[in-house]
Simulated scan of single mutants.
Amino acid sequence: MLDSALALLPFSALDWLLVVAGIAAAYVVFGIAGFGTALVAGPVLIHFMPLSRIIPLLVLLDFVAAFGNWLPARKAVARHELLRLLPCMAVGCTMGVVFLLQLKSAVLLLLMGLFVSGYALYSLAVKARPQRLNAWWGLPAGTVGGLFGALFGSGGFLYALYLNARLTSTEQARATQSALISCSTVVRLGLFLLAGVYADRALLMLALLLLPVMAAGLWVGRKLTRRLSREAFIRLVTWLVLASGLALLGRYFSS
C-alpha cells in the first residue's frame, strides 16, 4: 500500500526531505501562534506543486490541527467573541471565494502584505497601546480574516491580533482562535469538495502521509508556548505576523 501511495507522489528523497521540513516548521508555528501554515509551508511547497493543490492540502491538515487545539481547551472558548466573529468570517469567506474566482488577487496580496507588515512594525515599536480593543473591531477582523483566509489561506493572524487585544487570558484567546479556524476550514473544505478538488487521490494520500509530521510539529509548538508569559506570547505572535507580511510581499514581488 505504501509503495502504491509513493507511486502517486513522484518526489525524490530530497524533495520529501524539504516537504517534510516545510510542513514540520509550519506546524511548530501553528502550535505556537495558531496560524501561519500557508505562509511558512507555501514558499517551500510551491517548488513541488501548484498553489491550487497546496491550499487544499493545508486546509485538510489545518482542520485536524485546529480541532486538536480546540478539543482539549473547548471549555476556555470565549463564546461571546466566537459568536461575534463567526458571521463576519462567513461573509468574508464568501467574498474571498467570489474574488478568487472573478478578480485578480495580486493587488489584494500586495495590500495585505503592506497592512500586516505595517501593523506589526507599529505594534513592535509602540509600547503604550490600549489595553482592551473595542468590540466593534470584531466586524472588520472577522470579515477581513475570512476574506484573506479564502484568498490566500492566511487569515488567522487577524483573529490572533483581535482576540489578544480583547481577552486577558492566553488560553481563552488560543481556544477561541482554534474554534474560529476550525469553522473556517469546514467552510473551505466544503467548497473544495463541491469543486471536486479532493477527488485527487494523490493529494489525499499526501495529506495522510504528512499527518504524523503535522502532529509532531504541533506538539513541539505547544511545548514551546507553555514556557512563555502572556506578554512574551503576544510579542512572539507579533513577530510572526511581521514575518507573514514580509512573506506575502515576497510572494507578490516574485510572482
Rank of each mutant, 00 (worst) to 15 (best):
L9S: 08
L9G: 01
S12E: 06
W16H: 05
V19T: 12
V19Y: 06
V20R: 02
I23D: 03
V28T: 09
V28I: 14
V29Y: 04
F30T: 13
I32P: 00
F35M: 06
F35K: 00
G36Q: 11
T37W: 07
L39S: 13
L39A: 15
A41S: 13
P43S: 13
P43A: 15
L45D: 01
L45G: 09
L45I: 05
I46H: 06
I46F: 09
H47E: 14
F48L: 12
P50S: 12
I55H: 05
P56G: 04
L57V: 11
V59A: 12
V59T: 15
L60K: 00
F67T: 13
K75Y: 14
A76L: 10
R79F: 13
L82M: 14
L83G: 09
L85H: 00
L85T: 01
L85I: 05
L85D: 00
L86S: 05
F99C: 15
L109P: 01
L110F: 11
L111T: 08
L111W: 02
L111F: 11
L111P: 00
M112A: 14
L114F: 12
G118K: 07
G118M: 10
A120I: 05
S123C: 05
S123M: 09
A128C: 07
R129M: 14
R129H: 14
P130Q: 11
R132D: 14
R132I: 11
L133M: 15
W137M: 15
V144L: 15
G145M: 12
F148A: 13
G149E: 12
A150G: 07
F152M: 12
S154Q: 08
S154G: 09
L161W: 01
L163F: 03
R166P: 02
R166T: 13
R166V: 12
L167V: 10
T168Q: 13
T168Y: 04
Q177Y: 01
S178Q: 05
L180N: 02
S182H: 06
L189G: 11
L189H: 04
L191T: 03
F192S: 06
F192A: 04
L193I: 08
G196F: 07
V197K: 04
A199S: 12
A199D: 14
D200R: 04
A202S: 14
L203M: 09
M205T: 10
L209H: 08
L209V: 08
L210H: 00
P212S: 04
P212T: 08
P212Q: 04
V213D: 01
L218Y: 13
L218A: 05
W219M: 14
V220P: 03
L224H: 09
R226S: 15
L228C: 10
S229H: 07
E231Q: 06
A232C: 09
F233N: 08
R235H: 06
W239L: 15
V241Y: 00
S244P: 00
G245A: 07
G245L: 07
L246H: 01
L246A: 07
L248A: 09
L249E: 02
L249Q: 03
G250C: 04
S255V: 06
